[in-house]
Amino acid sequence: MVMYALKRIFLALLVALTVSILTFTILNMTTDPAVAMAGDTATDFEIESITIAYGFDQPMPYQYVQWLGNALQGDLGTSYYFRTPVTALISGRISITLWLGLVSMAVGILIAVPLGVIAAIRPNSIWDRICLTLAVSAQALPSFWFALMLIVLLSVTFPILPSSGTDTWVHFIMPVFVLATRVMPAIMRLTRTGMLDVLASDYIRTARAKGLKPQNVLFKHALRNAVVPVVSVSSVQLGHLLTGSIVIETIFALHGVGFLAYESTVRNDLPTMQALVLLFSCIFIIATLVADLANAWLDPRIRVVGIDN
């Protein structure tokens, strides 16, 4: 297990490095940072002097190594637009996004897994149909539209919930609900399929033949095996949730890093964009790593496969 974990961590670091190279290259190739810094009214001479002053004329690999060296020391550059260090900019806002993401994920899982289990216990029953209808409907809802409709309904027509801001936990109810709805369908349907497969398996018959109580068979023997794919997909869903948070934070005016990503893209703020893409990638990589380790803990066969590979 320790070997497996070390191997996974090493792989995760490699992925993070690759992502940083790719984002740096793509962003620097598609925009001219000097133009963005100089502003709309700048003359060619000003742009040229900025290019030389900031080293934008240096070869790309050289610039990358410099940037990486600074990044590893906690310096992600200075935002062209906000004129503050990117690190400070992000650290002031990351808690909102992380909080929003993790709570939405938790709410999504807490709704989806029980619904999936209920649907699987009695396949094709009315409960199964209700759960599947919910999942398919939720999957079909575009979250920006759903968010706006909720605001119309719950903030305008019936002013129950605030439509924007981050002052109290009440402000987070609608955003969390929208994001949870986004991650819920895939998790629910996968739980259902996984449970159906596992419940028909020979070892569940063995567990029942031992005389174990139904709840013990269901939650100890079946669910543990059924959630292995669910864990993997949850980490992917977290990625969806992060991209979703860019839209949701913009709609509900939550000043998290999602909103910052929107702002920096609109302003062509290269260092901030670069840092945010890297940040989102790292969160995603960590989520995948956690999922891999959780699965290795859930299913001992995965640990073996990991070492053999």
């Binding site: 070892y203 063995t206 029942r208 005389g211």
Partner: peptide
């Protein structure tokens, strides 16, 4: 529930498929 008190206790079963009859987890 009464039946599950007997199953695995007073009567037990050995199955055909040893490869899949044990829980992998």
């Amino acid at each position: 529930s009464e039946m599950s008190d007997i199953r695995g206790n007073r009567m037990a079963m050995i199955f055909q498929e040893p490869m899949t009859s044990l829980n992998p987890a």
